[in-house]
Design a protein around this nucleic acid. Sequence first.
RNA 1: GCAGGAUUCGUCUAACGGUUAGGACAGAAGAUUCUCAAUCUUCAAAUAGGAGUUCGAUUCUCCUAUCCUGUACCA
Length: 533
Amino acid sequence: MSQKKRRVRFAPSPTGPLHMGGVRTALYNYLYARQAEGDFILRIEDTDSQRFVPGAEEYIIESLKWCGIYPDEGVDAGGKMVETPSERHPHAPYRQSQRKPIYRKYAEELVNNGFAYYAFDTSEELDAKRKEAESLKKTFTYNHITRKGLKNSLTLPKEEVERRLAETNNWTIRFKNPENRVVKMDDQIRGHIEINTDTLDDKVLWKAADGLPTYHLANVVDDHLMEITDVIRGEEWLPSLPLHYLLYEAFGWEESRPSFAHLSLLLKPDGKGKLSKRDGDRLGFPVFPLKWVNAEGEVSRGYREDGYYPQAFINMLALLGWNPGTEQEIFSLDELVKAFSLDRVIKSGARFNPEKAKWFNQEYLRMQSDEELAKEFVPILKENGIDTGKYSMEYLKQLCALIKERAHFTNDFWTISHYIFTAPQSYAENDIRKFCTPENLENIRKVKDFLEKTEIKEAPYAKKEEAVSVLEERLTGYIKENGWKMGSIMNTLRLFFVGEAKGLGIADIIYFIGKDEALNRISAALEKISIER
RNA sequence: GCAGGAUUCGUCUAACGGUUAGGACAGAAGAUUCUCAAUCUUCAAAUAGGAGUUCGAUUCUCCUAUCCUGUACCA
């Protein structure tokens, strides 16, 4: 079995930050290529000079890098991402603006062979036509009927056409759709699709104004030249698939026409419609892989900055619109490469669920070693003004081992364990009311004396488990001896140590903050609360 | 409007035409420890509607509804 080497491409346009839906498209392309031991190409479709956004290309490259998606070929934006220098590669360059000289001859070839024509209508004229049609509740289409009444090389005298081509540049080359023909197409995800060409309009392929092709021409020509075998792209392209088929036919490239797979859209978590930047702002989750600041200084959060592991992000995205057919949900990139298949990609739109995204990250967090987590914790502590020099790596490892069970993100570590590092500044009102009865306060004084006399091993101690359980036994033993209620004593202590009735076990807390600090916190709390009364 | 596409628990999804329609997230209840979380157990929750084909439709066909995409000299 000798199959051609698979070549796929991800071809975003640099009009802004890469949306997570785009990352998913890139990921599926990447997985497909890796599995087939083919090539994954990154091409930049910047044929719209109007909408070009500075920095967007760099953003795309950095995002893919963060996700661990490395192209085999593609734009090299100064990074080490692409091994082969772009200039030397036979398929280079990979930025369509740099391929500008290539396209015109292809557009003209189509005109010469009768598959396209020159059109001289101005945007204003066409807009007027569209408005007119709209008022009649119809849609204006530039097709085999209307083109007879418009200004183009099919209707104008030859000399006039030549004069306009030579003297002006406000003309375009349009595709000449065949009349009443059924185009038969196949999609790897959606199956067989048929459409009548009479419903199509004569799309602009090339614009004289800027000498650039539109998406349709550039895309087909580049995919052909770059020997792309499979086009895996978003569903928004499905309606233009017939045009692309017709273009391959007109060029005589049907033999090497790639196979197509159209991915469904990512939908917003609530309501209707596709996932947009606004939804993230509104519902409080990122829609972009990385943080992005636009020209107006507006900030959009990113998965990276929100503390997601790239593997978790990728894993979540992979399962949004695809599943392996088994009950496995956690996949490494390599496992995804092995398991992925286009025929298990879902046809319908997938609603994004931020809660599930958090769950994925939690799963990955738990897979990290305590040492890795401790290393991640250090900068977070510093941000919160903690002198991390005071804590050994062993100390932090022991703490992380305990708190990782309660977190979705390493960013949560501070919220969960701040009281280990700083004494509470205030105490929750309702917890004071609940636990600080005169009787309880009296008992706590006795507990304090007891702790003072007790030998306590502090963090980091080699036999941590043992140290904590010994302390716990002594403490609970003492409380039981006196016939006090376990809950009230423990929770009062917790209130004094933490500031509220939350957090780790009392023995754990004392182990981590140490005997002196524990005693200090009890004294401070007793003083403060008796003053307030 | 027209053209395409889509439609299984709230959400992501599984089910060669024959299953008590399965799993996960979220939710609820219980167990558990000194609290909170975590954990464990249990519960609740779906084939858009209508015709047809068939011994039998989530699955095939048609119609309706709803949603999405496209309808640019944007991608």
